[in-house]
């Protein structure tokens, strides 16, 4: 099979077209949000979100409500709990995330144990890019546009509050509000990504491309651009590779995204050696 056919042939199927668009959208949004997660040491938050969502999904299943809305609500509750514990109770961020995430996770496990819809729960909790619907595609595109636009518009205030929140407060910036917005934004990215393209792909795309980008540049605009580009390329390449190799898409994309980090470490080491010589 020629290179072009390798790229084009899978795209003749509508499910692959939807998967490609959805993966690209999450591939941009997740890393752009992830840059702030890594800069603000909120990586653990994104992981804990994956656990906390269980509570909302289980509650929605028990109540017969939309599972996606239930997941979103759980993510928002967790984000607000964490923000409250960090901003008001002055807890360290990792402790706040651990307490809120594990508490919600425990509630979710109890909810699942009494749920009568284990298959529906499985679908929402472990979404698959190959089964993504047109409505899901629209949701992730909207999410991507919102995340990128919010970061572009708020870049000066995001930089000021991330680099030195104490100093930002002296400029009358409401840092608590910005912290909450960042955590809520991350929560939205995780839950929308998680329920559309899958938990593994969503979480990995939040963290790995942003980490790789930070290894390759120390300028925030370049890091954001690189993170989005690396996320989108890992998503698309992983999707195509999974199709041709007959492997599950989410894990392949995740492995490629992690491989980008390894490549970035290697590239940075080589560059430093060259500078040293």
């Amino acid at each position: 099979m020629s290179g072009i056919a390798w790229l084009v042939e899978p795209m003749s199927y509508p499910f692959m077209q939807r998967a490609a668009v959805g993966t690209l959208a999450v591939g941009v949004a997740a890393p752009v949000a992830g840059v702030w997660a890594t800069s603000r040491r909120l990586v653990y938050l994104t992981d804990a979100m994956g656990h906390a969502i269980l509570a909302g999904v289980a509650a929605a299943a028990l109540l017969g409500a939309s599972l996606l809305v239930g997941g979103l609500t759980a993510a928002l509750v967790m984000a607000l709990l964490v923000a409250l514990l960090v901003v008001r109770a002055r807890l360290p961020e990792d402790s706040a995330i651990g307490v809120a995430g594990q508490g919600l996770f425990a509630l979710g496990v109890i909810g699942v144990s009494v749920s009568s819809q284990p298959r529906a729960l499985s679908h929402v909790l472990f979404g698959n890019p190959l089964t993504i619907s047109s409505a899901d595609v629209a949701a992730v595109i909207a999410l991507s546009v919102i995340v990128v636009a919010a970061v572009a518009v708020c870049l000066p205030v995001l930089v000021a509050t991330t680099f030195d929140p104490v100093h930002a407060r002296t400029l009358a910036v409401r840092t608590g509000l910005v912290d909450t917005a960042v955590i809520v934004g991350l929560g939205l990215v995780v839950v929308v990504g998680l329920t559309t393209v899958g938990v593994l792909m969503a979480l990995t795309l939040c963290i790995a491309p942003a980490t790789a980008a930070r290894l390759l540049s120390a300028r925030v605009t370049r890091v954001l651009f690189l993170a989005g580009s690396l996320g989108a390329s890992a998503g698309l390449a992983g999707l195509l590779a999974s199709y041709h190799l007959g492997l599950p898409a989410g894990p392949v994309v995740a492995v490629l995204a992690v491989a980008e980090v390894a490549a970035a470490v290697l590239a940075r080491t080589c560059l430093r050696r060259r500078h040293a010589n």
Partner: peptide, 14 residues
């Protein structure tokens, strides 16, 4: 944080 010295200083102009 991945920012330059110039951007960090300009943060004072907010």
């Amino acid at each position: 944080m991945p920012i330059s010295v110039r951007r960090a200083v300009t943060a004072g102009r907010l």
